[in-house]
Amino acid sequence: MALLLSFLFVFFFFLCNGSASAAIPLHLDDLLPNGDFEESPAKSNLKKTVIIGKYSLPKWEINGLVEYVSGGPQPGGFFFAIPRGVHAVRLGNEASISQNVTVNPGSIYSLTFGATRTCAQDEVLRISVPGYSADLSIQTLYSSDGGDTYAWAFMATSKVVKVTFHNPGVQEDPTCGPLLDAIAIKELLPLKYSKGNLVKNSDFEIGPHVFKNFSTGILLPPKQLDLISPLPGWIIESLKPVKYIDKKHFFVPSGLAAIELVAGRESAIAQIIRTVPNKFYNLTFTIGDAKNACHGSMMVEAFAAKETLKVPYESQAKGGFKTASFKFQAISARTRITFFSAYYHTRLHDYGHMCGPILDNIRVFPVY
């Protein structure tokens, strides 16, 4: 009898604990439902490529002229590169797609999405959730294979947010507009300091969702377009984006991720750290190449307080790296550290693919 009671107690304990753990919401880090658009509309809801009906695209709500397209040659001499799958959507004049997403209020989320322009130089993609919106210019192509991927962040203000991608432009051809081929979301967890380092997220391990099957890196927009950074702790302090790269698809000096400075002096990354006025500190960091055919004479410039260091690096495009350091004296309780690439680079044999030196493993610690 005692054995039976013990068994029932253990069974009840696991049953309760199993139910409790199932009720705990998981941290989002995946494609949105039908985020790769491989679940197609019914043939009866398609007029050639145009989707007919507000709810005809599974898991999405559409407004305006939205096309469901496949990769490859298109009528009119176009070619749609869809590297992450077979299908994508194209947003015509003033068209949009949206989806309601369940989130944790007060948490920070990053959207990762593959986007490229299709037929006009001045195409813009507007991303919005309640309380946040940004118009992202996709005029500049950073990869020649349609693989441009962006990240954009927001703070959730309710349990359900409506995520919207909108083409605010009006072209002569009403079907002209941005192509979206994959959309994912990730909850960005709060940062913690590492022992012996004043820099938060110093090795860029906390960042946006990375697509598993294909990646040319993730473009992080400048702070003017993204008030909440998709790279926690860091400010994209420039006119152009920087690129977040992962170990699976690139060479990374240490850890799982690094930053590639893809637009020369137009892409810079910075962080404001706590310091003691007049105290001396060491700043160390690693630079290199991502083993992505980015070659030539590179130069990373680093700034801290009144000190500057220019670090040259001769890239053989084979995934090398070097570490640099310098000492600076703090002049206030807050010190801005900044990094940018002095030169512009493109990939070997692919001049349409912008690239640059990579940055990783940044540390600031006091000199005693």
Rank of each mutant, 00 (worst) to 15 (best):
F14E: 07
H249S: 05
V103Q: 09
T140L: 14
T286R: 03
V101S: 12
Y344D: 02
D173S: 02
D181L: 10
I236Q: 10
G146R: 08
A268P: 08
L283K: 11
A258N: 03
N197V: 04
A184R: 15
V170C: 05
G18R: 13
L348T: 01
V160T: 13
Y150I: 12
N100D: 13
A42M: 13
S98T: 04
E39H: 03
S137G: 14
T308N: 00
V50D: 10
G71W: 10
N213A: 12
S133P: 00
K54H: 09
Q316A: 10
P208W: 11
I51M: 02
I218C: 10
P312D: 00
N45A: 15
E123P: 02
N282H: 11
V210R: 14
A115K: 07
K200D: 06
F79L: 13
R347I: 03
S254V: 07
K306R: 11
Y150E: 09
Y142M: 03
S110D: 06
K223H: 14
P241Q: 05
A134G: 11
M1E: 08
V276E: 13
A23R: 09
A263E: 05
P33R: 10
K43L: 15
V124E: 12
I331A: 05
K247F: 08
K59N: 09
L111P: 13
I97N: 09
I82R: 05
G53N: 08
P241T: 00
P277W: 06
S202D: 09
F80E: 03
G356H: 04
G85N: 14
K47V: 03
Y281W: 06
F251V: 13
Y351D: 10
D122A: 06
E301S: 06
A2D: 15
H209Q: 08
V161G: 07
H349Q: 02
L5M: 14
F328I: 09
E67V: 02
I236H: 06
A290Y: 00
G64E: 06
